[in-house]
């Protein structure tokens, strides 16, 4: 399964980078979202995969039980990344709306400098 996930991460990265290189700012943000998924899955896969063994611990279990459960640290990292990623995405979505109101389209070529903002129909 690891091999499949590695392949998936590669495809997610490729798709994310491709979308980020589009001139449409909406696609740029979609690309950012894909890149976020890719990075999360990368950390997750690198942390080691264990089917159906969440990082729970019984009160009577000792540290030796760690071998049977998933590694909690990558999960904690990813949880933070998901939430922050959402913050970035929400902010950029509203930003696109504003850009569209001012610029009339979402072509990045028309956003080279702040001086030009609003000067294009």
């Amino acid at each position: 399964m690891q091999a499949v996930l590695i392949l998936t991460v590669g495809i997610l990265y490729a798709a994310g980078i491709y979308m980020m290189m589009r001139r449409s700012i909406v696609k740029l943000i979609i690309g950012l979202g894909l890149l976020g998924h890719a990075a999360n899955l990368l950390i997750f896969t690198a942390g080691g995969l264990r089917r159906g063994a969440p990082a729970f611990i019984d009160p009577d279990q000792s540290a030796a039980a760690l071998a049977q459960i998933a590694d909690p640290i990558p999960q904690a990292l990813i949880l933070t990344a998901i939430v922050i990623g959402f913050g970035v995405q929400a902010f950029s979505i509203v930003l696109i709306r504003r850009v569209y109101q001012v610029n009339g389209n979402d072509d990045l070529k028309h956003m080279r400098s702040t001086d030009e903002l609003g000067s294009n129909p």
Binding site: F44, R50, R51, P54, I82
Partner: peptide, 16 residues
């Protein structure tokens, strides 16, 4: 992605 999290022992991630 969230389903993958469920399957590989990360229910918290999946819910989030």
């Amino acid at each position: 992605v969230s389903l993958i999290f469920v399957l590989f022992g990360a229910p918290d991630l999946a819910i989030t």
